[in-house]
Computed example of a mutant assay.
Amino acid sequence: MKGSTHLTIGTVVGIGAALAYAGSLPHAALLITAASFSALAADLDGPSLLSSRLSPLSRFLRYAVPTAGALAVIGVLLYGVRYGFTPLPVFASVALLLAGLTAKEGFIRNALVSAVGTGLLYLAWRASSLGLCGLGAFVVIAPWLKHRGMTHTLWVLAAWTALGYQLELEWGYPGLMLASGAGYFSHLAADTLTPSGVKWFSPLLRKSFKLR
């Protein structure tokens, strides 16, 4: 299924979480960002955001989104070093950069994604954050995995939801676990509707589950 479809579903999930839990505009923005990024995260193991048949708009977005994400990350880092880091700008800028990189493929793309994960691990170490540490480890490892492999399993869904719970505890934003877990689940559920299906229980069970 196209990444644009996953993104749309994740955004809807995030809006629902924001309506249920958000007490402020930044809180709502964080929940929507978390759900939208989670809906794309499973495809960090392969290009997905744009189809292989690129329209002029797709070609533009293929370069514009990661460029905007990189600039956002640089801006957040420069601001954070001087004034301190806050969750929403860091998460939003990294999510934008990674979303852009899912539209690319190859060794360089994988290395860039892993580099972003390494940066998250550094921030996790500076902030003593178990949640960011887990997120960083996922981002480092995921691009080198087989497409629709381990990232598309029940076990990683559970781990991703646990990361959302940990970040909810650390950052104090209710609903972050639900937004993250539901966003990731929406990706697997949507892929189950495709002809290839999803191997939910791999490697214990290699059967691909699909609903047409």
Rank of each mutant, 00 (worst) to 15 (best):
A111M: 10
V116G: 04
V113W: 03
L88W: 13
G117H: 02
V116P: 04
P87S: 07
V116Q: 04
K104T: 07
G106C: 04
G117A: 01
T102D: 08
L101W: 07
V90K: 05
V90H: 06
G80L: 07
L96A: 14
A103N: 07
F91D: 03
G119M: 10
L77W: 11
L77P: 00
F107Q: 08
S114R: 02
G117Y: 07
V90E: 06
V94C: 07
V81N: 04
L88Y: 14
G106R: 09
L77M: 12
L120D: 04
Y79P: 00
Y79G: 01
P87D: 08
E105M: 00
A103D: 06
K104M: 03
A95R: 11
T118F: 14
A111Y: 08
G119D: 10
L88R: 04
L112V: 14
I108L: 15
V94Y: 09
F85V: 07
R109E: 12
V90F: 12
T118S: 10
V113T: 14
S93H: 13
G119Q: 07
T86E: 13
K104I: 00
A99F: 08
A115E: 00
V113I: 15
L78Q: 08
L112I: 14
G80K: 12
L77A: 10
G106A: 01
L101I: 05
L120Y: 05
G117F: 03
F91C: 04
T102V: 02
V90S: 10
A99P: 00
L97E: 14
P87L: 06
R109A: 10
